[in-house]
Amino acid sequence: MSVPVLDIRDLRLAFQGFDGRTEALKGISLSVNAEERVALVGESGSGKSVTARAVLGLIQERRDTELTGSIAFEGTELARLSTAGRRRLRGNRISMIFQDPVSSLNPVYRIGAQFLEVIRRREPRISKREGCARAAAKLSEVSITEPERVLSSYPFQLSGGMCQRVMIAMALINAPSLLIADEPGTALDVTVQDQTLRLMRQLVLEHRAAVLLISHNLGIVREYSDRLYVIYRGRIVEQGATDSVFRDPRHAYTRALLDAVPRITRTGIPVVGEDVEAFSAPCEIHAEAA
């Protein structure tokens, strides 16, 4: 097997606050292979977003954190890179899609200018015209019919779904080998979210990029991932192929999470215990299908 795109081993992270240390990650190990779509599932506060930011090297720039363990991107240990070296990866080799597309775009610049800035991360000398042409081409790939109009618009002039497409196009324009999607489209309504996720899946296939999908939404995870990791309070509690985990959830927390999904046929939202002892049980690993 070739080198995984992303290989995290025993990642531990603590924040130093005014009232002492808070451990956010207590030894996370996960890997994403080339062109694989991996989901990291958990409730809010479980440490899933922080993991994504550590992969991007954003956590490392903060002074109030202690980070141990290893994050290797395409075989390169992130901790061995300089701050500038990690920054070079961002937007080039790794890019990220955020939860709220509208407020994730700079409100005082046109979409075109923001695209150009992203393209220049990879090719600093590209001309404005050529950059815009490339952005327009990428925008038509995300089914935007009038790319020129969108490029000359400000974010507030576009709908949420439109902004989400712009973000996807922006994230993929430099052909990264890893795309991190942090709760993509959670801020949008369900139909638009579904549309954009389909689009993302299709484009990721075409670009042969690997995806780390971060979500609390099991429906999305089941639909859009090959493999998944369940994270609870900074620990991975279950991992395996998506089908296998959904068919046979072994860890108490995973079962509770699956039970917590509101169903139309049932009445009300089921209650999940806050700190059930069984949730701290060791990690369940589903054997890889041969």
Binding site: L56, R90, N92, S95, M96, S103, S104, P107, V118, R121
Partner: peptide
Amino acid sequence: YVEMARSYG
């Protein structure tokens, strides 16, 4: 959007 800018390096 500041975080997004950072994520793009």
